[in-house]
Nucleic acid binder design. Structure first.
Length: 194
DNA sequence: AGCACGATGCTCT
DNA sequence: GAGCATCGTGCTT
């Protein structure tokens, strides 16, 4: 067996959210299950930064739903939306500052069989959307507030592939059409080639 | 390829 | 009561 790659440490997430977002591209999300490892290379993320950002859940202040975002960095903020979907975020920046990076897409590597079962055989669009990633990885509200940086954690981020900075594109965030400017158009969505 | 729509239930003013 | 950090289907170009 090969040595497990080390988990990304808390200091990585304890930085400006835009830096964390870009640096997450090319990293590998890993979940350890009884049946084995699930993993994929991150290729699309979005940044949500503080109460001033009117697209961010923190715009209403600290609530029961968003409380994890206000906590220390390196935790999973997983919330429910549209009556049926779960979305995974990585909490960033210092304790008491609400910011996070939404995981929007990854390229599945390990555990594809398990993901296919959960995605009902939809191999064509297996994990190319925030709710699809959670479905494939079996992430729900029970995983909210998981510590991604604990050595015991079954959900964490590893080093993955090198992403050429010149292939990273910044565009406006998705699904926030009713949010006022400048937040609606600010280019805080980051994508890259596998 | 792109748009419209319905599903479905939690969250917050 | 309104809106939602989405997805899959079905219909139109």
């Amino acid at each position: 067996m090969t040595e497990p790659s080390p988990r990304i440490r808390r200091s990585f997430f304890d930085r400006p959210t835009l830096e964390v977002a870009c640096d997450l591209l090319g990293k590998r999300l890993v979940k350890l299950e009884q049946a084995g490892r699930l993993s994929g290379i991150i290729n699309e993320v979005e940044a949500y930064i503080g109460a001033e950002d009117l697209a961010c859940h923190a715009r209403f202040g600290k609530t029961n739903r968003n409380r994890v975002m206000w906590g220390p960095p390196g935790f999973a903020y997983i919330y429910f939306t549209y009556g049926m979907h779960w979305l995974l975020n990585f909490v960033t920046e210092r304790d008491h500052f609400a910011a996070a990076v939404l995981l929007r897409s990854l390229v599945a590597e390990e555990g594809v069989e398990t993901m296919l079962q959960r995605r009902k055989g939809r191999h064509k669009n297996l994990t190319n959307g925030p709710a699809k990633v959670c479905q494939a990885f079996g992430l729900t509200g029970k995983d909210n507030a998981l510590d991604l940086c604990s050595p015991r954690s079954t959900l964490f981020v590893e080093n993955g592939i090198k992403v050429g900075p010149e292939t990273i594109k910044a565009t406006p965030r998705i699904g926030i059409d009713s949010v006022p400017e400048p937040w609606k158009s600010i280019p805080w969505r980051f994508t890259c080639q596998v």
